[in-house]
Design a protein around this nucleic acid. Structure first.
Lengths: 198, 198
DNA sequence: ATGGGATGTTACCGCTCGGTACGTTGCATT
DNA sequence: AATGCAACGTACCGAGCGGTAACATCCCAT
């Protein structure tokens, strides 16, 4: 009642830009980027349009900011799998695929926001395209490196094959929802690794 | 100069609706559906807007018509692989994956228009979503049936794994362009079939 | 030759989009 | 208490969207 001073439990009330970023991320992910207008974003964020354009120069810049955060979260999850099994590349991959299988078989999952952005923005000039492409290139290199680390004969081939499974799980998850083919992604990855290590 | 009669070299000038359908298909495929306006479509088709709305009730209906044609072409290609190797399910799959690998590693390839439509239209009510989903369900069933036909222990598992590779190639092709991971999709499919047949 | 379907032409509608000029609030500092 | 300043809201804009009305024209079949 009488607490008029700075809020202790929430000392930094989320700035408008942060609320916009989170609202945009949810909406872009679930509905698609082009399908969501700035009006809907600010409404969901509980702010107004000028706040969006003060924090971000344009909708496109907001899209880029959202995708960069998506990428950061991806790598955070990925490194979690890596750190869980130090020095064991195959166990790291196995761990990651296990998590992927779990996420990809949940209803309303929409795969990878970065992959989806590549579908929505084929033009190489677009910022969204560039962020997503750069991330996928990094992922490809990372998978190839892990494949080499686990001693695969054709490391690049195994890394690429694993990437195909990952992207396939992303796409299939939003096509089929729960009970889709993504349920077998971890087992398929095992089979490919078996074959490449044999 | 004096040729005012019917054109001999082009005796059946394509009806407006047909030209619109083909123009829309190219544009939707290369640029994305939401990114293309009706004005651009009729310009490319060399017709005018009322012709579009006489042949198709709305843009959404045109989208559905385009996707249905895309689906028909897909099955035509698929059956070509099947008929090329009567009674040999594994050879049929191998043939299809070979063609898939070839297409998916060409620059400017944009994967599967039906998969892309699922990304652009997550809402189950949308006609584009329904056409694409129905097709993917059919494809899943078909792959599972072929896996059973070739004697896989876990036929459903193999069929789903092959579907993951296919969708992965679709997505990867438009992410990486030429030289992408889709180049290994046929080899990966072989490895999975080997593992499932023992 | 003539009627009718399909097409082209032109102009327009309402709506929503991304984006902005300008006024208002609230809080820290002095 | 007055001031300064950053953050926010109100109200608006031009453009492009999907879609339509009304009318002229072409071409083919009868």
């Amino acid at each position: 009642m009488s607490n008029t001073g700075p809020e202790i439990l929430d000392p930094a009330p989320p700035r408008a830009a942060e609320r916009i970023l989170q609202a945009a991320r949810k909406l872009f992910y679930s509905d698609g980027i082009r399908a969501v207008g700035v009006e809907e974003i600010v409404a969901r964020a509980g702010v107004t349009k000028p706040s969006l354009y003060r924090g971000f120069g344009s909708k496109d810049e907001l899209v880029v900011a959202v995708l960069k955060q998506t990428e950061a979260d991806f790598w955070a999850r990925f490194e979690l799998s890596v750190e869980a099994h130090p020095g064991d590349a195959r166990a790291q991959i196995r761990d990651f695929f296990k998590g992927l299988a779990g996420r990809s078989t949940k209803a309303d999952h929409r795969g990878c926001g970065l992959s989806n952005a590549m579908v929505e923005y084929p033009e190489p000039e677009h910022g969204a395209h560039q962020v997503a492409l750069s991330h996928k290139r990094d992922l490809r290199a990372r998978l190839r490196a892990l494949a080499a680390e686990m001693g695969a004969r054709d490391a690049d081939g195994l890394g690429d094959a694993l990437l195909l499974l990952i992207e396939g799980a992303y796409l299939s998850s939003q096509i089929f929802g729960a009970g889709g083919p993504s349920g077998v992604v971890a087992k398929a990855a095992e089979a490919l690794m078996d074959a490449a290590l044999g």
